[in-house]
Nucleic acid binder design. Structure first.
Lengths: 181, 181
DNA sequence: GCAGGGTGTTAACAAAAGATAATTTGCGTT
DNA sequence: AACGCAAATTATCTTTTGTTAACACCCTGC
């Protein structure tokens, strides 16, 4: 990686903080900012009938998120992205990131891994969990894969990520607890 | 697109036929062949407890499929890919396709659209349907999005794609039919 | 310390889904 | 036309989930 690109990259990276509860990207926005979470937790959600908020995804430290609909599909964001804790991020415009990484083979690979394969892989595994697993098995897998989230995020958000209601998740947890004995 | 690349591309494309029921890619295989369906229908499925086959995805004419696990993640195929009708394909090795398309800006865009964004988009929409929709709504969306599949594919396969059992799908169809009156 | 809001658990009931088996339907073959 | 097979439907029963509401708990702010 040459120095010019490195400087371009560094100059484009911004540091951003947000208090718990802040909306980073609003539904309908066309932001193309890519967020790397240094500290904190973020959820994406959309609003349905009667104003009910349904959480779609959760992100913790060291993971990357962005307005997928904007960056990948060129449409307005379907989701709100909101912090669940006081948080710190690095951000960089998507286009800048693409420009820089495309000039650089190592970074291109990193970029591909992060923004292509990684996202596909996550989405695929998630679909598989819906097709092949019961809600109970889905929760156990989630707890195994994301212990950090299980301990720090309210269950009501996790329930929707699993495609069930908070009440049902509570019952599932009780069933699992009873089985362990 | 220059002639050399065009010839390379054409030389690499193979025509393949398969009778109904044939396995094109077997679970555990490392094939990196990309299939374009000229005619016919293909399902991907994996085998679970008691040898039960669970269908994961269905593909109809003009769509592209491949051993996702091999091509994108570098692992053995988790699925069998099987024809549900007598079928005809164009096939091309994934690496060849990547090599050629990376030298060509128009094709690169096509490739990106098909193999990056398109696949992510499908996977994403599918996850959204599991998180936001009930099984009944999921079926109605599926029927709207894939009328061809609804008419030509046995319901038992569609049921698993929707994450439910064939019996349940039958009941859902009855419920919907009754509502229409 | 107390009040209030949000979160998790439990209850009660209705609706839906899973499991299993029997029955019917549809379709291709002979 | 009759047969046979697979798919779809229906039936029965059990389990799970959704829905709504009550309640307990915790935590925060005042």
């Amino acid at each position: 990686m040459n120095l010019i690109n490195l400087f371009t990259l560094l100059r484009s990276v911004k540091i951003r903080s947000a208090r718990k509860g802040e909306i980073l990207i609003a539904q309908g926005a066309t932001t193309q900012e890519v967020f790397f979470i240094r500290k904190g937790i973020v959820r994406s959600f959309s609003i349905h009938d009667k104003g009910e908020e349904i959480t779609f995804q959760l992100y913790a430290e060291n993971s990357v998120f962005s307005n997928v609909h904007g960056v990948l599909f060129g449409t307005a964001s379907q989701f709100n992205y909101q912090t669940l804790e006081d948080s710190k991020f690095y951000t960089i415009p998507y286009t800048t990131m693409m420009e820089i990484t495309q000039k650089n083979s190592e970074l291109l690979e990193w970029n591909r891994t992060f923004f292509g394969v990684r996202i596909i892989q996550q989405a695929f595994q998630r679909v598989e969990s819906f097709v092949f697993l019961s809600p109970e098995q889905r929760y156990m897998k989630f707890a195994k894969d994301h212990p950090v989230l299980v301990n720090r995020v309210p269950d009501k958000y996790i329930a929707h990520v699993l495609g069930i209601t908070p009440v049902s998740l509570s019952r599932i947890k009780r069933r699992i607890a009873h089985k362990r004995r």
